[in-house]
Each structure stands twice: as structure tokens, then as C-alpha cells.
Write a protein that binds this DNA or RNA. Structure first.
Lengths: 345, 345
DNA sequence: CTGTTAGCGCCTTCAA
DNA sequence: TTGAAGGCGCTAACAG
């Protein structure tokens, strides 16, 4: 029944050659005479030989595997990105290992162990917690040896190659748009305080407001983790507000959608009572009612570029600088923003 | 800078013991005298030793890795399930490898190669295409040797252990509920024809309708792949209907949400003009406007049970029968279904 | 309780 | 162009 899995030895025996020749046929076919090569190929075919990756990895010291460390696989924002990563990796023969990054303390060590134990050659790291300053502290030690690319978020001062969106510019774009639509009292529901994205987006928010002569410090603000819940919380506080902003920018689509949803539960509607914008353009943004006006990140590109950059590094490219790729965002106008006649605050 | 990664030899040398002893400390500590053990532990600590998994796998013939093959990572339905799988696996020291299952032909072979090449010990397979009858054909050959658990969907006649929801019962529950709310003209937007889920859910749909004296054959129906697009298409056809059903059951939440969204674009509203139900209870279902009434699958449980079943198999449990786990669904009443006075069709 | 030994399957000099 | 041989790092008998 369960026949033994064929090894390179079996192939060699059947083809009447040495294992070295079989190995060459696989990794350097040109070194083998055509006739020999054909016999070997046939033998491989006939027994259905697949190189044992454990053995191969042990010899070659690389496993052709990329580790993807996410804060939360369940978050729909990551779906398309992981999809793109998987595609790019598969194309180049790499496997994709997924781990959920728990906030738990000593997690860094466990990520590193993937490298030390030869389970992954490189790391695609989604991590934006500034509190994790320890990562950068390790740079210069052996830790640096784990080829890593920051994706979407980044560890400031970590000195790692990075692929992310122009968060600051994206938010500016959002605010500019809201102002153009007549809004001058623009609240914000921010992401988690300890996250770089929160900072970057906050910068864009403040910068754009100032440019339009609006004091960012005077605007309503709420912050919390990325997710619906933060939107709910914000909405519950919003409805109590005496002087309500006419528009609210949310740091993430999930927050925006949660915000609108909870608003509805309280009898307010968007965009009649408030205009709302999100950030990300997750697949659901276009489906929610009303469809969400938002800033699009290039999910697919982010994933693909990060993966390719990492694989290039693994294969010896990237001799020079530390790459830092910033992708532009795009305004997606849908129906959660209403034009109003400018009033004073 | 990049110091050499320590091996078991280094540890042995430092601790003044043989590599065998170090190995024992790691896998069978009780076999080692306490004092020796401590010396070894210290040595391990001091050099930061982590066993090389490639070497370990080569010897042990197992890689402690589970392969998860999804039809579409991007689909938000899978998020929570993959999350649960990853949790369960991590708890027991398994890694999770992810592949997107492309509909491309000979994909089966590539999945098998994960086993043959010793990259994964077992497979969690999300596949419900009945056209894929070849998989079952292989059972009995070496193919069977790849320990596999079907999740959510299943390959009929594949004879593989399976973990899924009671799809038939779930849909019955939905229809019963709609009837209870006064609906007797109940359309359906189905999933892809070639998918088992479509069949199972169709069975429940027909069964429940018949039980209530309604002819399933007379109801409006539309089918398409799981995803928003199918909901859109269905809605565009729906608005043209002369005799509109008062309620529509959708085979998936994404379909339902797409349906409602497109309905709105055509000036119809839910539940005033139509009542709509979905299936799955994806995270967004609760956030959409209006919040979606749906049938909940136990995502976390599905993922966890499947993973544990597989790991049990890998570790020698499951000597006996082929497990077939069916989880109950649950009705989640929200706001997309309206009670109406019963009328005749 | 601990050490010695012999590979797991593959790649890669080094010779022929 | 091909083969022989050694070893990657670890584990699992088998001795002691």
C-alpha cells in the first residue's frame, strides 16, 4: 500500500548512474550529457521522485521558505496582501509559513528561532508597535542575520528594509478632499497609539488641516485598536457630542465601518448626519451601505513587492542600500461623504 | 558579526558530554541525571542553541508542519478559521504552511509533493469541487498516505476524515425562520454548482420548503461563485423580476452583502422591499447596514477541531474509524428579515 | 545513566 | 562528462 517514498538512490539505480548525476540533472542539467540526462529524467518520472527537502535544506542551508508574521490573520485587511505574497513566493518556488504575532512579550525570540532552526530563510514582518524598540536594539547582533522586510508597518530605527504605503500623504489626500467638500470641523478616529501608522497618519492629518488653516488640536478625536470595536466606541461617544464634527476621518476601514454601523444603531445616518472616510479600501468598503469613501492602499503591490524584495535579498541581490519602498495611495470616492456649505466652527 | 549558528556539537563540547546526551535532554529529559541535565541546559542557554529542524526532520521523518490548502486566502470567510488552525497548531508545536489552491489542473500533484518531499506531515484541505473526483480515485494508491482532513467542504467519496458544519440543517433553520416570519415565496442565490456546499445547502433548502408545503422548483434562483459579484449579478436580475420573492436566501454572507449592496444601488432596500438571509456569519455580517440575519458557522471550532484531528492522526491516534465531525449551525437574528402577513404566491 | 556508531537523503568537492 | 566519498546536524539503536 504505502510504498516507500523514492529517494535519489532509487533513481540513480534505475537510471544506472550515480546519485551525483541525478543531483546534477536536477540542479545543473547542462553539466550532463543529453542521453544520460534523458535516462535520468525518465527514471525520475517513473518512480515519481521528489527531492527530500529536509535533506536538501540540511545540505544547502536554506529551506526556500518565507515566514510571514502578522498581528492578526483574522483581520480582513491582510487577506489580499497575504494572497499576493503567496503568489509571488510560489512563482519563485518558495513556501509560505504563517504565524500570528501574539503581543506576548518574548515573541521576537520565537521568530528568530525560525531562522536559527533553519525553518525559514527570511521574514516578512508586519509590526508597527513602537514599544517594540528592542528589535532594533538587536540589530548588529546575530539577530540582524535573519533577513527581514518590514511590510505595511515598520519598526522605527530598526533599520530594516521596508515596503509600505505613503500613509502621511494618503491621509492628507483624505483631508484635502473633505475640506474641498466643505468640511472644516473634521474629527478623527485613530488607530492604536503605540502604532507607527497612527503616528504617520496623524502627521498627515495635522499637516493637511493646518494647511487649510484649521487647528488640529481643536478637533474631536478618539483612538483604539484597529477593528470594528473602536468604531463602535467612537460612535457612542460621538452621539453624545454637543458640537459634532461634520466629518470624521477613520484610520482604517474597519473602524469606519464599525463607526457607521453603530451610528445607525443610534439613529444617525451617514452621510446625512456625518460624513465618514476610511483608510485601506478593504474589499468590504465597496459593499457597505452606503459604500465607503476611502483611501486605497495598493494591497497586492505591497505584498508582492515585499516578497520579491525579500527573495532578492535571500538570493544575494541587494548588496547596497537598505531598500525603502513607499507606495502611493489613491482616493476612492464613494458615498459616505456629503458636500456641505462651508460654515464656521 | 554573524556568528555561526550553534549546533548540538557545540553544546555537547561546552557541557562536556556527548551529542546523544544533549539530544536526550531535549527529547527525553528523564533519561538524564539531573546534574548532567542541568549542565546541558546551561550550555544550551549560553550559546542559544536551537535544534536544526532540517536535520531533525531528516532523521525523524517528520517536519511538524501542517499544510493548509485554501481556494482563496483573500476570502474573509477563511480568516477566523485559519486563525484557529494556527493557534491549535502552534500550541502543539506545529508550523502552518499556506497555499492558495489554484483551480489549475494538476494541482493535486503539487499538494502531494509537499508530502513526498517532506515539507509537510499532513494536509488540511478546503475543497468542495465535485469535479475533482480524481482525488478519491487516488485513494488506495500512495496518495492516501498523505494524512488529510477535509475542512468545511469535502470531496464526496474521497473517504477522507472531515470536519464541517451541518449545512443542510443550517439552511433548513434559515428557511424555517423565513416561513415563520410569514414568507412563502423564497428565492435563493446559490454558490457554485460544482461545489458540494451548494448541493448540501440546496438539499436543506428544498427539504424545508417542502415541509412547509412550498414547491422548491417554483422559486426564483440564481447561482455563481462565492463572492460579492454573484450577489451583484443576482440583484440585477432580481430587480427585473415581475413576481419578486418576498425573501431571498443566499448561500454565503458575501453573496448576501453583495446582493443587498446592489439592491440599494437600484433603489430597493432591505428588508423593506426584500428580506435577505446569508450563511456563515463572517465578521462583517454584524457590521453591514442593516446588520445581516444569517446562519452562523462555528469558525473557530471548525479550524481547531480539524487541526487537532489531523495532529492526532499524525501522532498515531485515530487508529479506528475515519472521523466525520459535523458541527451545528446557529441562527443569528439581526435586521435583514422583516415579518410580513402571509400571502399566497 | 551515558557514549559510540551509523546513517537519514542530498549536494559537492575532488578525481578520473 | 561522470563517479566516489564525505559530511550537513541530528537521533536511535546498541553497548558499556
Amino acid at each position: 500500500m504505502t510504498e516507500k517514498i523514492p529517494t535519489i538512490q532509487d533513481v540513480a539505480r534505475i537510471a544506472g548512474v550515480s546519485t551525483a548525476t541525478v543531483s546534477r540533472v536536477l540542479s545543473a542539467p547542462d553539466m550532463v550529457r543529453a542521453r544520460t540526462r534523458e535516462r535520468v529524467t525518465d527514471a525520475i518520472e517513473s518512480v515519481g521522485f521528489t527531492p527530500n527537502m529536509a535533506a536538501q535544506s540540511l545540505r544547502r542551508r536554506r529551506v526556500k521558505t518565507v515566514l510571514v508574521a502578522l498581528p492578526n490573520i483574522g483581520n480582513s485587511f491582510f487577506g489580499p496582501i497575504v494572497d499576493a505574497i503567496e503568489r509571488a513566493c510560489t512563482e519563485r518556488g518558495y513556501d509560505v509559513l504563517i504565524v500570528n504575532r501574539r503581543p506576548d512579550s518574548s515573541d521576537d525570540a520565537s521568530l528568530l528561532s525560525y531562522f536559527n532552526s533553519n525553518r525559514a530563510d527570511g521574514l516578512l514582518l508586519f509590526d508597527g508597535s513602537t514599544s517594540r524598540s528592542n528589535w532594533s536594539a538587536r540589530v548588529g547582533n546575530r539577530e540582524l542575520a535573519f533577513p527581514t522586510v518590514n511590510v505595511c508597518e515598520l519598526i522605527e530605527g530598526g533599520g530594516l528594509p521596508t515596503v509600505l504605503s505613503d500613509n502621511e500623504g494618503g491621509v492628507e489626500m483624505a483631508i484635502d478632499y473633505l475640506v474641498r467638500m466643505g468640511h472644516r470641523n473634521i474629527g478623527r478616529v485613530a488607530g492604536p497609539e503605540e502604532n507607527v501608522l497612527n503616528r504617520q497618519r496623524g502627521l498627515g492629518y495635522a499637516k493637511a488641516l493646518k494647511r487649510h488653516g484649521i487647528d488640529p488640536g481643536l478637533q474631536w478625536r478618539h483612538a483604539g485598536p484597529f477593528g470594528f470595536q473602536t468604531g463602535h466606541d467612537a460612535a457612542r461617544r460621538f452621539v453624545e457630542l454637543a458640537d459634532k464634527p461634520s466629518a470624521v476621518f477613520c484610520d482604517a476601514d474597519e473602524i469606519a465601518i464599525g463607526f457607521i454601523s453603530e451610528l445607525h444603531a443610534h439613529g444617525l445616518t451617514c452621510p446625512n448626519d456625518v460624513s465618514v472616510m476610511g483608510f485601506d479600501d478593504i474589499p468590504f468598503a465597496a459593499q457597505s451601505s452606503p459604500p465607503l469613501t476611502t483611501i486605497r492602499q495598493q494591497h497586492k503591490q505591497l505584498g508582492r513587492l515585499a516578497a520579491e524584495l525579500l527573495m532578492d535579498m535571500l538570493e544575494g541581490g541587494l548588496q547596497g542600500e537598505t531598500a525603502h519602498v513607499v507606495l502611493a495611495c489613491e482616493l476612492v470616492e464613494r458615498q459616505t461623504v456629503r458636500a456641505i456649505a462651508p460654515t464656521q466652527t
